[in-house]
Amino acid sequence: MVQPSPPSTRRPDALAFALLAALGALWGLTPALGKAAFGLGATPLAYVFRSALVAATILFVVGLVRRRPLPLDASGLRFHLGSGLVGFAVPNLIGFLALRHVPAGLFAMVIPAAPLVTFTLSAALGLERATLRRFAGVVVALAGTLLALSPGAALPEGGALGWAFASLAVPACYACSNVFAVRFRPPGADPLALACGTASGAAAWLALAASVPGEPWGPLALARPFPPYDVFAAAQGALTAVAYAIYFRLLTRHGGVFASQVGYVLVLTGLGWGWVLFGEVPGPLIVPAAALIFAGLALATSPSRGPSP
């Protein structure tokens, strides 16, 4: 088993905060792109498969140019397949299935639960210090998330409440992926290689799912004439490649606590993209819901005082 990497000692600089803001903007745009593609007839499996393939190709080419080899030993392959499944393929499929029934801005209120669940899992595994303050933050932020799922907040009256709650599986998958990355990432692996491996693993899993009889979007479907929504899939893949490269850079250089602060940015950018692109206007309960999420994130993701376990 690969041991957890030691926490980074680098203090975040102006570039780190700029990358954090860019990451939040990119991830906030993801649901909006998917919703636009589904309006043109895309299916979730086709969309996620093609975007993963584009992301993996871009990252692989950049890695070749920059001479950042992809780890292909046993630990490397284990990481690529595990991270690609739990951190990309499964949450994106669930998320884009739900997006056909809920507003794009709703995900801006749900995804920040990922660092909270990450902390809970990490504390249970002894990777993070468990304190009353941080557990209180988890409770407060999850209360805000549940409030955001209610009619009158991010979910309109008469919205698909079942799909709204199903979307909670997305941050749960991301949390499992965060813990998996800490415990099993190949030692000394470059962030760009980790990003490429994750996207490549996801593309492999999705190609396997797409090869099921009756699914018309298998790997050979790429040879067919591109429908209009492939523009969105290509854009999604390019954004994913950039976002994953930024995420793993922040994770390896500044640690998971700093990277988790993207939740603050994501709440604002996700709601903003939903409003600009689809005219989604949240209800009045969105203000207290966002306040609870922000307060919970501040309590749960701020570093604990004292030595690490």
Rank of each mutant, 00 (worst) to 15 (best):
residue 42 A to H: 02
residue 264 Y to V: 11
residue 293 I to T: 07
residue 114 A to P: 07
residue 273 W to T: 08
residue 89 A to H: 04
residue 230 D to R: 11
residue 71 P to Y: 08
residue 256 G to A: 15
residue 171 P to Y: 05
residue 279 G to P: 03
residue 84 G to F: 09
residue 296 G to H: 07
residue 25 A to P: 07
residue 65 V to F: 13
residue 156 P to V: 01
residue 43 T to V: 12
residue 79 F to H: 15
residue 113 A to R: 08
residue 117 V to M: 14
residue 59 L to K: 09
residue 284 P to R: 15
residue 201 G to V: 12
residue 175 A to S: 11
residue 90 V to G: 00
residue 182 V to R: 15
residue 23 L to H: 02
residue 37 A to S: 10
residue 121 L to Q: 03
residue 105 G to M: 08
residue 153 A to P: 08
residue 110 V to P: 04
residue 195 A to V: 10
residue 126 G to T: 12
residue 102 V to A: 01
residue 40 L to G: 06
residue 173 C to K: 13
residue 70 L to Y: 05
residue 275 W to G: 00
residue 202 A to N: 05
residue 227 P to I: 07
residue 6 P to L: 07
residue 124 A to Q: 07
residue 193 A to D: 01
residue 211 S to W: 12
residue 172 A to I: 14
residue 201 G to T: 09
residue 226 F to N: 10
residue 245 A to R: 09
residue 61 V to H: 03
residue 260 S to A: 15
residue 229 Y to I: 02
residue 295 A to Y: 07
residue 202 A to W: 05
residue 85 L to D: 10
residue 200 S to N: 00
residue 107 F to Q: 06
residue 273 W to K: 01
residue 72 L to F: 08
residue 69 P to E: 07
residue 33 L to M: 13
residue 178 N to G: 10
residue 80 H to C: 15
residue 45 L to A: 00
residue 282 P to G: 02
residue 76 G to D: 14
residue 276 V to D: 08
residue 155 L to M: 12
residue 264 Y to H: 14
residue 257 V to W: 12
residue 287 V to E: 09
residue 56 A to Y: 10
residue 111 I to K: 00
residue 190 D to G: 09
residue 253 R to F: 05
residue 92 N to V: 11
residue 12 P to S: 06
residue 289 A to M: 14
residue 239 L to I: 13
residue 80 H to S: 14
residue 113 A to K: 07
residue 141 A to I: 08
residue 150 S to M: 13
residue 200 S to T: 14
residue 295 A to H: 11
residue 263 G to Y: 13
residue 198 T to V: 03
residue 214 G to W: 13
residue 270 G to M: 04
residue 189 A to W: 08
residue 84 G to N: 05
residue 253 R to M: 06
residue 104 A to F: 01
residue 129 R to Y: 10
residue 199 A to Y: 01
residue 178 N to P: 06
residue 212 V to H: 09
residue 57 T to H: 01
residue 18 A to Y: 04
residue 19 L to M: 13
residue 135 F to C: 03
residue 109 M to A: 15
residue 235 A to W: 04
residue 260 S to H: 01
residue 145 T to I: 15
residue 106 L to P: 00
residue 11 R to E: 14
residue 71 P to H: 06
residue 138 V to P: 00
residue 205 W to S: 01
residue 72 L to D: 04
residue 181 A to I: 03
residue 247 Y to T: 06
residue 239 L to K: 01
residue 98 A to P: 00
residue 87 G to D: 05
residue 260 S to D: 03
residue 43 T to P: 00
residue 114 A to W: 11
residue 280 E to C: 09
residue 36 A to Y: 10
residue 26 L to H: 01
residue 304 S to A: 15
residue 192 L to H: 08
residue 28 G to I: 11
residue 11 R to G: 04
residue 63 G to F: 13
residue 117 V to G: 05
residue 58 I to Q: 08
residue 162 G to S: 09
residue 67 R to D: 11
residue 213 P to V: 11
residue 9 T to N: 14
residue 137 G to V: 11
residue 105 G to C: 06
residue 3 Q to N: 11
residue 2 V to Y: 00
